[in-house]
Amino acid sequence: MFGVNQWLKLLKPARAMVLWAMLVVPSHAIDIELYTYEVAPFAMYEQGQATGLLVEVLDELFERANLSYQLQFVPLKRALITVKRQPNKCVLPVTRSQEREAQFQWVSPVAIYRFGFFSKPSQSYDLTTLIDAKPYRIGSFLGSGIGEYLQSLGFTVELSSTTQQNFAKLNRDRIDLWAAELISAKHIASANGVAMEPQMVFYTALGAMACNDKLNPAHLSLLQSTLNGMYQDGFMGRIYHRYGVDI
């Protein structure tokens, strides 16, 4: 659990002094407690500060809605269990499913994920449709869901424990194509001094905010309508473009 000083670092400086006063009173003074998990560059905790695309979206969303929040980095599985059991809490981003749908209230989409096939910069493949990638060795990572999806369609997929491992395997010719989320893949490539563009984009998924089923309905409605407005006025498009992907 983070201490008071760490919570302050997770918030915009302009709100820090206000939050200090709020933190010394009972926790219900914070409107919503949020959980997320580290996936670069969507959400990261670096040098005592939360950064990333998703964190910027949260700052804008709650500022527009005039609601306060705390953010804590917790593994997704643990966060889902906690949010399900305790009121006034939400976790994001979460993939909606039939099993989860009735267990939570939802604000969506807080994140848009586009998946594509990447090759070595020195290698190019003629990919027009998804089936064109079937002859090749494809790298993905456990837990992403994309590797399992491609396997279910009969593709040859090698699953690694992290997506970073697939970047290394691609450059060592151990796989032909890397199936990865576009923003994450470009971030990893850039960190290694390489510029990469997908050979093709083949899948889009949505990430949602899953909230306790007893969350204040007025807060839930306000967050959803505010998020809708952020898409309508172009804020979401601009921030994704800044991270290298158009939605």
Score class of each variant (00 low, 15 high):
residue 3 G to F: 12
residue 5 N to Y: 11
residue 6 Q to F: 04
residue 6 Q to G: 03
residue 8 L to V: 05
residue 14 A to K: 15
residue 20 W to N: 13
residue 23 L to C: 14
residue 24 V to C: 10
residue 25 V to E: 14
residue 29 A to D: 11
residue 30 I to L: 05
residue 31 D to Y: 10
residue 31 D to A: 13
residue 32 I to P: 02
residue 41 P to I: 10
residue 41 P to Q: 10
residue 42 F to T: 02
residue 44 M to Q: 11
residue 47 Q to A: 11
residue 48 G to W: 05
residue 52 G to N: 00
residue 56 E to N: 03
residue 56 E to W: 02
residue 59 D to V: 05
residue 60 E to T: 01
residue 61 L to G: 02
residue 64 R to C: 04
residue 66 N to V: 08
residue 67 L to Y: 06
residue 68 S to I: 01
residue 69 Y to T: 00
residue 75 P to Y: 03
residue 76 L to T: 00
residue 77 K to I: 09
residue 78 R to I: 14
residue 78 R to F: 14
residue 80 L to Y: 00
residue 80 L to H: 01
residue 83 V to L: 02
residue 84 K to C: 03
residue 89 K to N: 08
residue 89 K to T: 09
residue 90 C to M: 07
residue 91 V to A: 13
residue 94 V to C: 08
residue 94 V to H: 05
residue 95 T to D: 06
residue 97 S to I: 05
residue 97 S to Q: 03
residue 102 A to F: 12
residue 103 Q to P: 06
residue 105 Q to N: 13
residue 107 V to D: 00
residue 112 I to A: 05
residue 113 Y to T: 01
residue 122 S to F: 12
residue 130 L to K: 12
residue 137 R to L: 13
residue 137 R to Q: 13
residue 137 R to G: 07
residue 137 R to K: 13
residue 140 S to N: 14
residue 140 S to Y: 10
residue 141 F to S: 03
residue 144 S to R: 03
residue 147 G to H: 04
residue 148 E to H: 12
residue 150 L to T: 05
residue 153 L to S: 09
residue 156 T to L: 13
residue 157 V to K: 02
residue 161 S to N: 12
residue 163 T to D: 07
residue 164 Q to T: 06
residue 169 K to T: 09
residue 170 L to H: 06
residue 171 N to Y: 11
residue 171 N to T: 10
residue 174 R to T: 04
residue 177 L to S: 06
residue 180 A to L: 04
residue 185 A to P: 03
residue 189 A to Q: 08
residue 189 A to W: 08
residue 192 N to T: 13
residue 193 G to T: 12
residue 193 G to N: 12
residue 194 V to Y: 15
residue 197 E to G: 12
residue 198 P to R: 07
residue 198 P to E: 09
residue 199 Q to H: 10
residue 200 M to A: 14
residue 201 V to P: 03
residue 201 V to M: 07
residue 203 Y to H: 15
residue 205 A to H: 07
residue 209 M to T: 01
residue 210 A to Q: 02
residue 210 A to R: 04
residue 211 C to F: 03
residue 212 N to R: 03
residue 213 D to E: 11
residue 219 H to S: 03
residue 221 S to Y: 13
residue 223 L to I: 02
residue 224 Q to V: 12
residue 225 S to A: 14
residue 227 L to C: 09
residue 228 N to A: 13
residue 229 G to H: 08
residue 230 M to F: 08
residue 232 Q to S: 12
residue 234 G to K: 09
residue 239 I to S: 02
residue 242 R to Y: 09
residue 243 Y to F: 15
residue 247 I to L: 15
residue 247 I to C: 11
